[in-house]
């Protein structure tokens, strides 16, 4: 049961100072000419005042667009590993939307279950998530259709919900959340026994995700995938703005006899994604790649990892250059008989 307190918005500056003194850097959404990006801030004054969703998700911190896996040097025919410089810095991410916080369960399922990825584990261990509930949504949001909600606590260490102009409900959810509250207990007051839902956006349920998962294998060969993806141009925008896409590519960069191995985001939208060395490509056309995106999120991941690979943030639909709208496409797939 979460510990519920209230904190004044005007107290956040003091809290941020305590967090910084505690040795954590703070990432928060900042408005950069219409783009809302997570950037380092020292005070809440820099935070974007009004936004539905950040342009990129908080994934870029936990699973960066590119990051060092190891360093090496070669001498004659031998390769020697050198100490990696990729050390996580203690970080607090403030202002994560509940859908994005929920996506951490998907990242965890891929990077911690079956095989523990040490680089990711160190990042997640040293990162604290302070979520902020959504008071607004738009036509692209569908968190409630995939198990979330605008005030969902999953994935957050602390969740703030704005009750009025100066009051946040603070739900302290985990040990990391408790540690943050303990930095300035005087800022957290009693009075958290309130109904937060009336302060959260109303996101209608648009489809039955269990029904979708059940029906997807049966429509694998349906022409619907071709019809939907004719206009897809095969970029990686949907995957890269997605908080729950986890695929990566490995690149070695060398300079003389020294080198770095990097893990970089990859996307099933690219023609090269599954291209084999032989030249054979099991997904040689865009419709097969588009199908893979939907199957992976709504069929394979629920089957194999017991997690839905989509949190309904709507970023892929908002940013797609050619208006591939995932919600509309899912609705259409459900109408295939």
């Amino acid at each position: 049961m979460a510990d519920k307190k209230i904190i004044r918005k005007s107290s956040l500056g003091e809290l941020f100072k305590k967090i910084r003194s505690d040795g954590k850097r703070i990432l928060a959404p900042v408005d950069r000419g219409g783009k809302i990006l997570f950037e380092y801030v020292d005070s809440p004054g820099s935070i974007a005042p009004d936004y539905i969703q950040t342009t990129l998700s908080a994934k870029d911190t936990l699973l960066p667009r590119c990051e060092e896996m190891l360093r090496f040097r070669t001498e004659q025919k031998s390769v020697y590993l050198e100490e990696s410089l990729n050390r996580p810095e203690p970080t607090l991410i403030f202002g994560v939307r509940p859908c994005d916080a929920r996506s951490i369960a998907v990242l965890n399922a891929v990077y911690l279950i079956n095989y523990t990825d040490d680089i990711y584990r160190q990042k997640i261990d040293t990162t604290t998530i302070v979520g902020v509930s959504c008071a607004k949504c738009d036509e692209y949001c569908f968190c409630t259709s995939v198990g979330g909600s605008p005030g969902d606590t999953a994935g957050s260490d602390m969740l703030l919900t704005q009750m009025d102009n100066d009051i946040y409900l603070a739900e302290i959810l985990t040990d990391k959340g408790k540690a943050i509250a303990a930095l300035a207990p005087e800022l957290f007051a009693e009075g958290g026994d309130v109904d937060k839902n009336k302060h959260c956006a109303d996101v209608p349920v648009r489809f039955d995700v269990k029904d979708l998962s059940k029906r997807l294998p049966g429509v694998f060969e349906d022409p619907v995938w071709i019809a939907q993806s004719l206009r897809c141009i095969g970029c990686g925008t949907c995957s890269y703005v997605c908080p729950a896409c986890t695929c990566f590519d490995i690149q070695d960069e060398t300079d003389g006899n020294r080198g770095v191995r990097l893990r970089c985001w990859d996307s099933c939208g690219f023609a090269q994604f599954t291209l084999h060395t032989s030249g054979h490509n099991p997904r040689e056309v865009q419709s097969q790649r588009w199908r893979q995106r939907i199957m992976h999120k709504f069929s394979y991941q629920p089957d194999q990892l017991d997690v839905i690979g989509c949190v309904g943030c709507g970023r892929c639909s908002r940013t797609c250059p050619v208006d591939m709208n995932i919600l509309q496409h899912i609705t259409d797939i459900l109408e295939v008989h």
Binding site: L37, I233, C235, S239, Y240, W265, S267, P321, V322
Partner: peptide, 26 residues
């Protein structure tokens, strides 16, 4: 510094029709 290399610039461009782009060669 904001570029995430999604290659939407390349994919949206009618002149970027190369089947194998320079950046895809390793």
């Amino acid at each position: 510094s904001n570029c995430i290399k999604c290659y939407a610039c390349r994919a949206s461009c009618p002149m970027c029709y190369c089947e194998r782009c320079t950046v895809d060669c390793n």
